[in-house]
Simulated assay, not measured.
Amino acid sequence: MNQSPTPTRDPAVGERGPAVALTALRRDYTVHAKADGARRRTARVIRAVDDLTLHIERGEAVGFVGANGAGKSTTIKMMTGILQPTSGDVRVLGRSPVAERRQLAREIGVVFGQRSQLWWDLPLRDSFAILGAMHRLTERERRARLDRLVAGLDLSGFLDRPVRQLSLGQRMRGEVAAALLHSPQLVILDEPTIGLDMVSKEGLRRFLTEDRAERGTTLFLTTHDMSDVERLAERIVIVDGGAVAYDGALADLRESLGAPRELILDLASPREEPLRVPPGAQCAGIEAGGIRHRIRFSGADLTVPVLLASLSEQAEIADLSLAEPAIEDLVRRISAQER
């Protein structure tokens, strides 16, 4: 059987500019409804994405987060060519996703947490063989890449099992492997750790970090598991009401919101009375018979070394740890400010 030739393309396409460039992006939906007692259906327009502008450079790892209905999934669908924007411009790896959807599919890898790209009744191994042929990988390329994915994502125990017999966690690891099989330049992950236990989550995060470091891949991540963002992303973009509410480093977000941090001290000997704290800090609790003291403070007003110097003058510290504000709280604070 003759294999169709690989289509030629301008080698400069996809090599210019950022990995993702979204400019004044909008997407409207028309919803038809019929009120009680009304004879005619009425239509109203819902704006899911509203003037969203976002640029992601090649090699970046970006966490794209927000509440349900914030516009995250709609944005991804426009980035991958599933949806046509109402207005604005989308460029992914230098391509127009709708007009060049086939070409773009060879250069990106996508995981939708609730949608599968695996063949339900076939063994997982066969799905990888089919996907390798679709991406026109040579047998040598496919085997080498698959061996890396099987080892990194711990797939060997269920490669020969039909996909329909896999647990949700096993299937999600298979989905990630399928998205990475052709070594894409851009990886878009929508809820990639859904259904995974803690050990599997940690393994997936570690593999994604290592693979991105090796290949210089750009990572675009949406998730409700904020530990994914903290472990995988260098930059966080918060969307609210279809628009960007924050774009920057996670540490800068914590500082700008003045979100409280907590210093947890284990003293060498019990102390029932609270430690004296400088302005900007307060005692949040005393536990374990006076051994453990929790000190809450604002990172914008007080640094850890200054606070620790003050506390160590009053008691011998055996151990300490620092608890950062949960990212869910930061997202809620940003959303509240926007409203």
Rank of each mutant, 00 (worst) to 15 (best):
P278Y: 06
A249L: 09
R294L: 04
T209W: 05
T30F: 15
L219H: 09
G216R: 06
L208A: 03
T86A: 06
S312N: 13
Q170Y: 10
L302G: 06
R142K: 09
T74F: 01
A323R: 13
L267V: 06
A67V: 13
V110E: 00
I76T: 05
L275R: 05
D247R: 00
L93Y: 04
L320F: 15
E57S: 11
L104S: 04
L146R: 05
R27V: 06
M172D: 03
E287T: 12
D147L: 11
G258T: 03
T193G: 06
T8M: 14
D154C: 00
Q114C: 01
L311A: 09
L257E: 08
S127W: 01
A133C: 12
D50A: 00
H135Y: 15
A243Q: 03
I46Y: 13
A179T: 00
T23Y: 03
L146W: 03
E262Y: 10
L232C: 00
R276P: 05
F158Q: 00
E262F: 00
A179S: 09
G290H: 14
I236S: 08
H32S: 11
A213Q: 05
L124C: 13
Q84F: 13
R339N: 12
E234M: 01
S4T: 15
S227N: 09
M172W: 02
G203I: 09
A151G: 07
I291G: 04
L22S: 12
D36T: 11
R140L: 12
A336I: 04
I238A: 01
E100P: 13
L153G: 01
R39Y: 08
E100Q: 13
I286C: 08
F297C: 07
H293Y: 08
G132C: 11
A35C: 08
E230T: 06
L137I: 08
Y246Q: 05
R164S: 00
S256Q: 14
S87P: 08
S96P: 11
L267C: 00
G152S: 10
R140C: 09
D329N: 06
D154A: 01
A19N: 12
I130V: 07
V65D: 03
I291Q: 05
I130E: 03
A177M: 00
S4F: 12
V13C: 08
L93P: 02
S200E: 11
G109L: 04
E214W: 05
L311H: 02
G37W: 11
P325W: 02
S298G: 15
